[in-house]
Design a protein around this nucleic acid. Structure first.
Lengths: 168, 168
DNA sequence: CAAATCGTTCAGTCCATATTGAACGTTCCG
DNA sequence: CGGAACGTTCAATATGGACTGAACGATTTG
């Protein structure tokens, strides 16, 4: 039977795919968002019916993107992952970095344009400037968020179903 | 020979591909950015050595994304496209729309969560709220930009090389 | 009205990447 | 110190989307 939670996880996968990322990464994020408490790779693999390789790869991807936190509970063999308070804040950070990264090579290219293409050079420089300013703006928004919520603590602080004994 | 302009166009293609989009769309944007004045599909196809089908498809994609404007100069058979003043502003608009669009199905899913998963519901709602607020913030930034620059008029207003007679 | 040119659509091909199963190194338990 | 469990890496496969060439409809020109 498919519960509303399953539907949500499925949607998260589609959204991730829509955004040009791996579908499974979105599903894992959705799963951890629903669970709240840390979950091991084995649990993810079983719940989402994927290979452990995929679980490992995508969980680490989410960790790099800053959406998820790797935890090592005492008395637990395997690594576990837990969703952060504001998973999407990291998306913004990634976005800002990408915008800024796009601006640099553009501006560098423009510097090489000969004087016969001065107007093109100006256009490209405008373009790069826009990217840079937007990246600045993203980071401003991020700072505002961090000031409002404090830093990225685990969501719910493990208040829900911390016992790993449950098989399903 | 590869000019600095060609290098820039190539980079724009790679950036577009990096962002999960068609490479040719980025190349077209770079080409129109360099040219400034309107260019027809045939000109794009020849300059970038791509099929007319790709030129048509990707140019329309850029138009939907709002990076490019379709113009119909008098005395010209084919449609022509021209880069807008702030092509990346439209990227922001798209981004805001996507963030907002991601928030909606998440919130809808959360509403279906049974009371046994009240905490999960709260987490998902927080997640959706974050997306919504970020979308709001993007649009605020857009408004600020529009106020600063006026609306998206064609870049350079066709001041550069408007004659379509040049073969290359 | 005939002929040509242009933009779009569509089926087919190709390419990138997500995903997997198996092998490997490591760490922990007995 | 042997054995097992775990996470990671790697080659191979499968899936999705980009790109193309040809066909079609529409519009214009002579």
């Amino acid at each position: 039977m498919t519960t509303p939670m399953d539907t949500f996880i499925e949607q998260m996968g589609l959204i991730a795919q829509n955004d040009g990322g791996p579908r499974i990464a979105g599903q894992i994020l959705g799963y951890l968002l629903v669970e709240g408490a840390p979950r091991t790779l084995s649990q993810m693999a079983e719940a989402l019916q994927i290979s452990k390789a995929s679980a490992s790869t995508n969980a680490r991807l989410l960790e790099v993107k800053g959406a998820v936190r790797r935890v090592s509970p005492i008395g637990q063999r395997g690594d576990a992952y837990q969703v952060l308070d504001r998973p999407s804040a990291s998306v913004l950070e990634t976005l800002a970095g990408r915008f800024r990264g796009n601006a640099v090579p553009s501006a560098r290219s423009a510097a090489d344009f000969p004087d016969s293409h001065a107007e093109a050079r100006a256009r490209v420089n405008d373009y790069a400037t826009f990217y840079r300013e937007t990246a600045d703006f993203f980071e401003e928004w991020l700072e505002r968020l961090n000031r409002a919520c404090g830093d990225g603590a685990p969501h719910g602080s493990g208040a829900e179903t911390p016992e790993p004994g449950a098989k399903e």
